[in-house]
């Protein structure tokens, strides 16, 4: 029962933070430097790890598909499988999980330490709402950067699949044939659905991590506990949202 109350409290405080942060949206133009800084942290610094992981996810997907499909002569559809999987599911989910682990944990650690060392209290006594300068620019930045990261993840994943298809002896499919299969059964809607999912995941991750950071109480030990809780909550949120958003988009 106590656990259930805590979940409801967390949900309520996250929702309140969302409403409060969005009410400060008109102040974005004069906080443009903060928005750009967050775009850099969320987008640019996450890009290398997104590219590396999506390359190997695309590669492994092609390898497994080739191994399984060679037995019943369906190798020509590997491009379709890799293309759809990356665009509709793996690209958005992988970007969101990386955001939770890399960006979300850093956000929670920063805000939690600001809370523990009374910097958040100092902002409040100065009548500067933390939601305005610490949360809103991050939420807008994630909305702008997540589609970019997801498109790059999709492209690099497809490319990884193409490389594996060409250089693996038991698959041996040339890139033109691979990309032709990829294009044949894939529509713009598939990519768009993936982008919508990624937006929902990224936004939820940043919101959850900000809320947990700002609600940290206690000393330095609680900063670590908050980071763990933020990452675990983000991962659960991503997977729960994944089901519901996928169903809604079908």
């Amino acid at each position: 029962m106590r656990q259930f109350t805590r979940i409801l409290e967390g949900f309520g405080s996250t929702l309140l933070l969302l409403i409060k942060s969005m009410s400060y949206l008109p102040t974005l133009p004069r906080q443009f430097h903060r928005f750009i800084e967050q775009c850099y942290l969320i987008g640019y610094t996450t890009l290398p790890i997104v590219a590396i992981l999506s390359f190997f996810i695309g590669s492994v997907l092609a390898l497994q598909a080739g191994y399984a499909m060679q037995n019943f002569g369906a190798k020509q559809f590997i491009g379709t499988l890799v293309g759809l999987s990356m665009a509709r599911e793996l690209g958005p989910v992988m970007v969101a999980i990386l955001l939770a682990g890399r960006v979300g944990s850093a956000i929670t650690a920063e805000l939690a330490s600001m809370k523990v060392y009374q910097e958040i209290d100092a902002l409040e006594t100065m009548n500067i709402p933390p939601a305005r300068i610490l949360v809103m620019p991050r939420l807008v930045a994630v909305l702008v950067m997540v589609p970019v990261l997801t498109i790059i993840a999709d492209l690099v994943g497809w490319f990884g699949g193409a490389i594996v298809c060409k250089y693996t002896s038991f698959i041996a499919i040339d890139p033109p044939a691979y990309f032709s299969a990829l294009r044949r059964f894939m529509t713009f809607e598939d990519v768009l659905n993936g982008l919508i999912k990624a937006e929902a995941f990224g936004f939820a991750v940043v919101l959850v991590c900000c809320n947990i950071g700002l609600n940290t109480r206690g000393g330095p030990r609680e900063i670590g506990a908050s980071v763990t809780r933020a990452v675990v909550t983000s991962l659960i949120t991503i997977l729960v949202l994944d089901y519901f958003v996928t169903k809604a988009l079908m």
């Binding site: 600001m114 910097e119 100092a122 006594t125 100065m126």
Partner: peptide
């Protein structure tokens, strides 16, 4: 206008 000087300073690090 109320200002509070915190025990540990609470400066923005």
């Amino acid at each position: 206008r109320i200002a509070l000087v915190f025990q540990a300073g609470a400066l923005f690090n």
